[in-house]
Structure formats: C-alpha cells, structure tokens
C-alpha cells in the first residue's frame, strides 16, 4: 500500500513539469510565474505568424522523417540478424551497434563535428544532423524491433519457402506483415527522438536551425517564453498522440504473433 502511494507520488513528480505547460501557455502574462493573471490564446496565435519558427519546424520534420526511415531500416537488419541467425562474434557486434544508446551525446556531437568540418571539410547541413540522429535512434529502433522479431518463429519463413516462395517473397509475405506494427512503432519513436533532440543538433545544425535549436534561442529572451510554453504544449500533445499510437501498434503486433505482452519496449 505504501509502495502504491510512493509509485503514484513518483508519477506526479514525473508529470509535474509537463502539467505546468498548458497552465502558462494559456496564462495572460509575459512572466512565467505564479500567480496566474487570466486566460488568453494570444501565444498560440503568435506561433502562427512566426516565419522563423515555421522554417525550423519544417526543417525538423524533414530531418525526423528521414531519420525515422533510415534508423528503422538499420534496426530491421540488426533485429533480424540478432533474432534469426547465428554468426561469429554475434554478441560483440550487436553490443557495438547498441553503443550509441549509452554514449554521452556530446561525444557523438563533437566527434562528428570534427569529422565534418576539419577532416571532410564539407560544412554543416541537415544531413549532418540526420547522420547523427540515425546513429542515436538506431539502438532504440533495434530495441523495439527485437520485440517483434524475437517472438517470430524462425521456421515461419522456411515454411513459406517450403511452400514455393523465394527468400525475399517469404520475407515479404510472412515476416513483414508480422513485424509491421513494430516497424511503424519504431519509426514513430525515432521520429519523436529526432524531433526533440537538441544536444547534438546544436553542434551539427547548418544554416537553418532545427526546432529545438530555435527554441533554445527563444529561451534567452524572457519576452518570448510564453510562446515557448504554447509551442511546448503543442509538441507534448503531439508526442503523446504519436507515442500512444506506437504503443497500441506494438501491442497489436504482439497479439498478432500470439504472445503475451511482457511490458515496455526497452
């Protein structure tokens, strides 16, 4: 019983900052502090007219979409290799591929910066950000897709081949439909991570900032803080919707291959 109270208090601790977002987003004052002064939707309308914001959002969406697709493709390769094949040094190779999950992000950021600027002399663009985001999103994709692939009976594809299909069409007709929910869920998670990522993007972003980099700039100007709150409210609601879809799909995928759900995606 005390444990339950503690767990609920912990959840409140987790959600406390997020709950404040809409409170200040609709508060009619430029200072982010209590007491509240009144209701307004001005901050949201300001969002609609800020051109720089729109450009950064477009940029971030572009980066996030490409990151989602690429890291999911890499994730499918790794998860499939991990679940369905035995090969030499399997554990170390998979461990190496998962390393970006625990690597301090600043290391990823500075090392890619050095390579891009000093060694390749290619300048920064959206593609430098994408390259780094694919690197850090792939382990998450692998973790999610592992759930989908490990529950797959390896004889399933062999059965399809035995019934006349080629290796590729066996994958397309049997494995792909079964792991599809995992694939969509992996793309959604990678999309969310990329859209939110700041530490690396700040180093590697080119002439056009990504949305978090743009927000970072806003945080320095007290007058623009309520707009940030409004933007945050929209972002958080969107993330929650995307994550809920990802979770529902993950569960449906588990149900489709007929296994008991054992919990989260990590």
């Amino acid at each position: 019983m005390t444990l339950r109270v503690y767990a609920i208090a912990y959840l409140i601790f987790l959600y406390a900052p997020i709950v404040l977002l809409p409170v200040f987003a609709f508060n009619d004052a430029t200072i982010i502090a209590f007491p509240l002064s009144g209701f307004t939707t001005d901050w949201f309308s300001q969002l609609l007219t800020t051109q720089a914001l729109h450009r950064s959002v477009q940029n971030s969406l572009y980066i996030a979409c490409i990151t989602a697709v690429l890291s999911t493709i890499l994730g499918v390769c790794a998860a499939r290799a991990g679940a369905m094949y035995n090969f030499p040094m399997k554990r170390s190779i998979i461990g190496l591929v998962m390393i970006p999950l625990v690597l301090p992000e600043i290391i990823v950021a500075v090392s890619l910066l050095v390579v891009a600027i000093q060694i390749l002399d290619m300048g920064l663009s959206n593609w430098t950000v994408i390259a780094a985001h694919v690197l850090i999103c792939t382990p998450f994709s692998i973790a999610i897709l592992n759930g989908a692939f490990q529950n797959l009976d390896p004889s399933m594809e062999e059965a399809a081949m035995d019934l006349g299909e080629s290796r590729w069409s066996a994958f397309r007709l049997v494995t792909l439909p079964l792991v599809m929910p995992g694939i969509v869920s992996s793309m959604l998670i990678a999309f969310t991570i990329s859209l939110d990522e700041f530490i690396i993007a700040f180093f590697l972003t080119g002439a056009n900032p990504t949305m978090p980099v743009y927000i970072w700039g806003l945080l320095r100007f007290p007058a623009s803080l309520p707009v940030v709150m409004a933007l945050g409210t929209i972002l958080v609601s969107m993330s929650i919707v995307l994550l809920t879809i990802a979770e529902i799909l993950r569960r449906r995928g588990m149900a489709r291959v007929g296994v008991k759900d054992k919990g989260g995606f990590l």
């Binding site: 009976d153 004889s155 062999e158 399809a160 081949m161 006349g164 080629s166 007709l173 439909p177």
Partner: peptide, 27 residues
C-alpha cells in the same frame, strides 16, 4: 527448398498467425 517436390510439417507447425486457416492452407 521452394523448387523441390518436398513439403514439410515443422516441429512448431509454423502456422502463419496473420492468416486464417484457409489462407494458410492456400499459401
């Protein structure tokens, strides 16, 4: 395997879980 005149019943049966019985049989 897909060009041999052999067919196999797998130990796990490998029934495709996303298909109905008829779709499995007609695979």
């Amino acid at each position: 395997a897909n060009q041999r005149p052999t067919n196999m019943v797998f130990q796990s049966y490998a029934i495709f879980p996303h298909l109905t019985v008829a779709e499995n049989v007609a695979f």
